[in-house]
Design a protein around this nucleic acid. Sequence first.
DNA 1: TAAATTAGATAGTTACACTATCCATTCATG
DNA 2: CATGAATGGATAGTGTAACTATCTAATTTA
Lengths: 230, 230
Amino acid sequence: MRVGELSRRSGVPIPTIKFYLREGLLPPGVATAANQADYDEEHLRRLKLIRALIDVGGVTVAGAREVVAALGAHANDPLELLGAAQTAVEPRHRPDRSTAAWQAARDRVVALIAERRWLIHPGSPAIDLVADAIAAFYSLGVDELLDLLGVYAETADRLAADEVRAVLELPDPASRMELVVVGTVLGEALFNALRLLAHQHESARQLGAVPPRAPRPPDGAEKPGPAGGG
Amino acid sequence: MRVGELSRRSGVPIPTIKFYLREGLLPPGVATAANQADYDEEHLRRLKLIRALIDVGGVTVAGAREVVAALGAHANDPLELLGAAQTAVEPRHRPDRSTAAWQAARDRVVALIAERRWLIHPGSPAIDLVADAIAAFYSLGVDELLDLLGVYAETADRLAADEVRAVLELPDPASRMELVVVGTVLGEALFNALRLLAHQHESARQLGAVPPRAPRPPDGAEKPGPAGGG
DNA sequence: TAAATTAGATAGTTACACTATCCATTCATG
DNA sequence: CATGAATGGATAGTGTAACTATCTAATTTA
């Protein structure tokens, strides 16, 4: 297929596809003439992946480029690929990491890792990301949620165990590697959004409030809320 | 105090503070003369909150403005404030929501909410965010992680229950309201980062791999890994 | 009194992610 | 085989977001 069809089937405008080709996010098609190239289903798949990473996962174009490069480079090294995927989801803005408070936060993360006996590469950027968040809690003087640090870690571990299991269950290596990336990036977006919904629900429930219009239960006529379903 | 001190104590450059003042993120100080204004500890606290939201939470300047506005406007309405905080963490880029596939994804979210008897406002933007993620999975033909949708939802619910409980335990209303915001935004960043660490650990564990250099356990000399140490 | 700081206004900068044109082919169609 | 649409490659332009810099007149501090 040529760009026109690639554009139509992916929903991505032709100039943007050209931009991705220039930027090396999308591999060039097979040239059949001076101004003709041929793209296949793999290109379409890759393009959809790129858009999902950028639009849903919030990954930058540079991050997406690194991810697809890693997909090619580490076709049979899941841990390397995971590292690349994790680098891609890092935020653009980062706080000042040169303060003593930040160091204290990082020490706390290292201690947490040791406590939980987590197998973590000591140079992993994710350690610093956790430290960023903890340092922010410190700086705001908000200790209440830090009491939940153990709960957060335990929850993350359980969830990650299920996710990794699901990925490793895949028989096809290529799909498995793609799922590493998709799981890291889109899994995060999915969970974050579900957490927002859960916050709404739990706030309403624990406050004893009733939402403006409760969703109809699928079957029974059970009272859904603690405040009485009027 | 004046800008200079505010800048020194917050680590935010003066031009940036002026920018935040112009943009309405930071309330103006008390004017004492034509070119003098006085800022207090509350300004410092607000400024730190803004930086944490932007640097760690990845919130936009516009989002931060809405959050602090909501903090002022809904000083005693946690659910309204929660809604504002949730709006602030929405991603900038969003996928095409006009396709049939996206509608199918959204229907699935609504079904999930009904199944779980979650109390959710039907117009909540978070529903669409979940649909964005699910639609991306559909589009990539990756069903494996969608099998975990129930696990994700259950995990989110448990975590949210603990978080909401921690927030509601706070006796001071003002701190409580701030914790709603901080919990939503920074809690997300914290959990995401911990999830990355947990992915590393679980990948290494389930693959039977040993990390390059294991962090030293705090006390005993127990074998840290499942792959046998030696 | 003189250097430094300040509030307020206006303008400039940087990074990012596209978009738009241009040109010389090449393809599709009658 | 004529002709209009589409293509690949190159170059340049656009829009937004988040600062950053400069200027001015007034005020503070040494």
